[in-house]
Every structure is written in structure tokens, then in C-alpha cells.
């Protein structure tokens, strides 16, 4: 069977790729397009390390077929910082030591950014439930939750 031709937008750039019908978005990002920031921790949608957004909706790219990207807009961790300027969550994660090994960090940041876009003023419980699909084995989540809450507060301050 011939490969499928897909036209999409990734991190704001018009992008075309060929893929097998069975290939996941994560496979194509990592192996086809060299965007290895999204990680495969499980391949079954349980760990969230491959989190991306599809038209601003948070998804596990391991559960999405690459062909489904046709005509849609994908954003990955690689598109989060603008040039040299880290997105506020990225900066806060560094300042508050909200990562240890760093393997869950890209997915965690993509998920947290999506949270704050949907809800700029989340409670601790809301942060914890939103991030419940992103496993971290190193931190116990404490510093991650604090970093997200702090960033939200700062971003609200900046928006006023």
C-alpha cells in the first residue's frame, strides 16, 4: 500500500510528510520529522510524555494516527519557546526545580500550557486533575504543581 501524503501545520510551519496508514503522530514527529522532544513512555496513552496539542486540544500523540493531522494544526514542545525567550512555564520549571530527569517535562509543559489556556486561574485540585494524565516518577509532583500555580499567578498579573 502506498504511503499517505499529509499536509498539516506544525508549530506554525506548513509541513508535509508521507506516512504509513498505521503510523502514529508520535512516530512521525520523532522518526520522520526529527521532533524528538515528544517522548514515548508507554505508547498507550497512559503516561502523557508524548503530549501535543491538535487545534489547541491536548492529545497523546501516541494515540493519534499521523494521517489525522491532515489540515489541522499541531503544536509540540519544540514550538513552545519563542526564539531565545522561554515560555513562562518553561522558565518557572527551571527556577523551581520542577524537573529531575526531564523525560516527562516536555509533555508536562505542553499539558500545563494547555491548562492555563483553558483556565488561567486553576485551583491546586484543578492543576492536579488536569495533569493526572502526565506521569512523573521523580518529583512527587510537588514542585510541578507549585510551578504551574506560580506561573498562572504571574501570567494573570502580566495580563492585567
Amino acid at each position: 500500500m502506498a504511503k499517505l501524503h499529509v499536509s498539516t501545520t506544525i508549530n506554525g510551519e506548513p509541513t508535509e510528510f508521507l506516512c504509513e496508514p498505521y503510523e502514529t503522530m508520535l512516530d512521525v514527529l520523532r522518526d520522520g520529522l526529527g521532533l524528538t522532544g515528544s517522548k514515548e513512555g508507554c505508547g498507550s496513552g497512559d503516561c502523557g510524555a508524548c503530549s501535543i496539542t491538535l487545534d489547541n486540544r491536548l492529545v497523546c500523540s501516541c494515540l493519534m494516527l499521523a494521517a489525522e493531522a491532515e489540515g489541522h494544526e499541531i503544536n509540540t514542545i519544540e514550538g513552545m519557546a519563542k526564539g531565545e525567550n522561554l515560555q513562562p512555564l518553561q522558565q518557572k520549571f527551571l527556577e523551581m526545580a520542577a524537573l529531575q530527569c526531564g523525560i516527562c517535562t516536555p509533555g508536562m509543559l505542553v499539558a500545563a500550557k494547555s491548562l492555563l489556556e483553558h483556565n488561567p486561574n486553576p485551583t491546586e485540585t484543578e492543576v492536579r486533575y488536569w495533569l493526572a494524565g502526565n506521569l512523573c516518577r521523580c518529583t512527587g509532583y510537588d514542585k510541578i504543581v507549585r510551578a504551574v500555580m506560580d506561573t498562572a499567578e504571574e501570567m494573570r498579573g502580566a495580563a492585567q
Binding site: L35, T36, G37, K39, A81, F93, T105, P106
Partner: peptide, 15 residues
């Protein structure tokens, strides 16, 4: 190694 890790550039074995 922080900036590389929060931008997805840090190279893990499978990368």
C-alpha cells in the same frame, strides 16, 4: 542542562 530539557532538545537514548 535545564534549558535543553524544557525545550525538548535534551538527547535521551531513544532520540
Amino acid at each position: 542542562d535545564g534549558a535543553e530539557k524544557v525545550t525538548g532538545r535534551a538527547e535521551f537514548a531513544a532520540d
